[in-house]
């Protein structure tokens, strides 16, 4: 359940941002959580619901999570494909060994505050 640690890191960033921009309340938070990030999105949402309710800054804030695809490169022919779920093989040469690239990001993109 390391999602709790990540939610704590998010709330720390929101607190810093609110102070920097002289804002009192977070309305929406938009994050990218990649399919290879090792984060269970439901657990992250659960942690956010609990911890965000503890301070007036984040109480009632809405969390928007975008799950961008990862890229898989074929070890034999080098063909790249984008996919949310790991593909079984390369569509060009049928090779099954594909090297994942990216898809492991956990990025805070935008915060709407007032």
């Amino acid at each position: 359940m390391h999602e709790m640690s990540l939610v704590q890191a998010l709330l720390a960033q929101l607190t810093t941002l609110a102070a920097e921009h002289d804002k009192k309340r977070v309305i929406t938070v938009t994050l990218d959580i990649g399919p290879l990030s090792g984060v269970v999105i439901d657990s992250f949402q659960f942690g956010f619901d609990i911890l965000s309710a503890e301070t007036s800054l984040t109480k009632g804030a809405k969390l928007i999570i975008i799950n961008p695809p990862a890229t898989y490169q074929c070890i034999r022919c080098g063909h790249r494909q984008s996919a949310a779920v790991r593909p079984d093989h390369c569509p060009e040469c049928n090779e099954t060994l594909l090297i994942p690239e990216g898809g492991d990001a956990i990025i805070l993109n935008q915060v709407e505050m007032e």
């Binding site: 960033q13 975008i66 805070l108 935008q110 007032e114």
Partner: peptide, 21 residues
């Protein structure tokens, strides 16, 4: 990029962060 539940009160502002947690 936000599509719903999205306030446009004059004192609200969208801040671009793009930083890893």
């Amino acid at each position: 990029d936000l599509t719903d539940n999205h306030s446009h009160k004059t004192d609200s502002r969208v801040i671009e962060v793009h930083q890893s947690l």
